[in-house]
Simulated scan of single mutants.
Amino acid sequence: MDAIDRNILNLLVVDGRMSLTDIARSVALSVPAVKRRIGRLERDGVIKGYTAIVAEPGARKLHALVELFCAGQTEREDIIRVFQDRPEVLVAFTVAGDSDVVMLVQTDGTDHLESLLIDLRRHPLVRQTRSQVMLNTLMGRITL
């Protein structure tokens, strides 16, 4: 993966429906070249899928950053099993620092968040969690 692939990924993270023409213009490639690169990124598993984030009318969602601290040396696949079936987890990152994983989660409120944290802590690989509830969005751009 080179710098152009990373630029394409960043554009798709910000707008997964961005047209191939707009992406090509942004990265200074032809549309067929961008299509080939995206196809390769999908085949290689770098792009795992596309999703729509739907806001429920009248529903206020609670977002939080949740850090997982895992016991001992754990394999990536084992860590993923801790949260892969939890629809509340929107995205998860391995990180350098005190924790092993940082996740962005969305819940229906504080009771739902507390229930999620309790369930996560019950997993034998999880030593501890630490969370921060998000209050307001100051900017909505996401890049990797």
Rank of each mutant, 00 (worst) to 15 (best):
D2N: 06
D2A: 00
D5K: 03
D5N: 10
D5L: 06
I8W: 05
N10H: 05
V13P: 05
V13R: 14
V13A: 15
V13T: 12
V14Q: 14
D15S: 03
S19K: 05
L20Q: 10
D22E: 10
I23H: 00
A24Q: 04
S26I: 03
V27A: 04
A28S: 13
L29A: 08
L29Y: 08
S30H: 06
V31H: 05
P32F: 03
P32H: 03
A33S: 05
K35R: 15
R36K: 11
R36S: 06
I38V: 08
G39N: 07
L41V: 02
E42V: 00
R43W: 06
R43D: 07
G45N: 01
G45L: 00
G45K: 00
I47N: 00
K48P: 10
Y50W: 02
A52N: 10
V54I: 15
V54P: 08
A55P: 13
P57V: 05
G58I: 01
A59V: 14
K61L: 08
L62Y: 02
L62W: 03
L62I: 01
H63M: 11
H63K: 06
A64I: 04
E67Y: 15
L68G: 02
F69V: 02
C70E: 03
C70F: 03
C70T: 03
Q73L: 14
T74S: 12
E75Q: 12
R76D: 10
R76G: 11
E77M: 11
D78L: 05
I79W: 02
I80E: 06
R81P: 09
F83Y: 14
D85Q: 14
R86K: 14
V89S: 05
T94L: 13
V95R: 09
V95G: 10
A96Q: 07
A96D: 08
D98Q: 15
D98W: 14
S99Y: 02
M103A: 07
V105K: 01
Q106N: 09
T107V: 07
T107C: 00
T110D: 08
H112Y: 10
L113E: 05
S115K: 13
L116K: 01
L116H: 02
L116A: 04
I118Q: 13
D119I: 05
L120S: 07
L120P: 04
R122D: 12
V126P: 01
R127W: 15
R127E: 15
R127Y: 13
R127C: 14
T129E: 04
T129R: 00
R130N: 12
R130M: 12
R130Q: 08
Q132R: 11
Q132C: 14
N136W: 13
T137W: 12
G140V: 05
R141A: 10
I142S: 12
I142E: 14
